[in-house]
Nucleic acid binder design. Sequence first.
DNA 1: TATTGTTATACTCTATAACTATA
DNA 2: TATAGTTATAGAGTATAACAATA
Lengths: 165, 165
Amino acid sequence: MKRRRSVARAAKTKPGKNAAPPKCAPKLALGQLDRHLGYFLRRLQIWVFQDFIETLRSMKVRPAQYSVLLLIEANPGRSQAVIGQTLGIERARLARLLHEMERRKWVARRASGSDARSHSLHLTADGEKELAKIKSLAERHEARLADHVGPKRHRQLMDLLRDFG
Amino acid sequence: MKRRRSVARAAKTKPGKNAAPPKCAPKLALGQLDRHLGYFLRRLQIWVFQDFIETLRSMKVRPAQYSVLLLIEANPGRSQAVIGQTLGIERARLARLLHEMERRKWVARRASGSDARSHSLHLTADGEKELAKIKSLAERHEARLADHVGPKRHRQLMDLLRDFG
DNA sequence: TATTGTTATACTCTATAACTATA
DNA sequence: TATAGTTATAGAGTATAACAATA
């Protein structure tokens, strides 16, 4: 043993794959984990995020960005505070997120008429055009998800989760 | 406006609350978000993690650590590779996670008899004692979760999510 | 005094690369 | 050559603190 303190210093020799290989599942006992809804929720959530990110890689859009774009589209002119509260995104984080989307010319922050402190958020023409493409990829992702869990289970989960909260 | 470049430099005056206030929900239109299972999955997942972390704050145990402890308890002697694959935790991250748990004297890494490269993982007596406390707190969290979504929905979600995968 | 948006910092988590010891 | 475990680093995401402008 003794494998510590002897490390890489940006030597760069070969690519070297390190990602978790598919392999056969080892099938361990889950113990108490089997009684935690959060565990199963999280397993599926990981799958969803990975598939979403993979499916939308060409557009370089992450789940949080996508949700912000959709919310601005459905509620143009609202403030950052309201968008952030609805999605549960910290206003500090949302500020940086929007800065990036402004840089990409997808979103415009205009002065609010009623309150000089707040910005009113809008999609640009470019943003709307790009969002159309993004939405079609997101639909492809959703179809894959329905296929992954089974169409019936997909519908049941949607019903259960949507009409609470 | 013009609120950029004029910033804090560890001035430290007052605590100042910055966290998202509860407030009344602004009730925005969700648009296409309403058709994405991942969105609702994530909303609930965020609630679960926050409640779990809060409930187990006194033990300083996070969800990933908890899942590793349970899996070692249910499968003593297995290797890091197998534990990590089962939980979907990168081996790099698991190594640091276990380093921390070893420091706390909850987990012991022993040499494997069959393969000198791998470690076999076990709970220490201390680890088992602490895990008992942790599990009782985790049960309290699970009860709160059942209360949050409703006992019936909790059971339905568990059934749907458990028997797939 | 409180709120909106901003920047900064620290920590967790994920992903990847590179290294060692061993197979 | 491949695998198990380690360390390092970079990027998201979360949480918190502090600030300027405004209410």
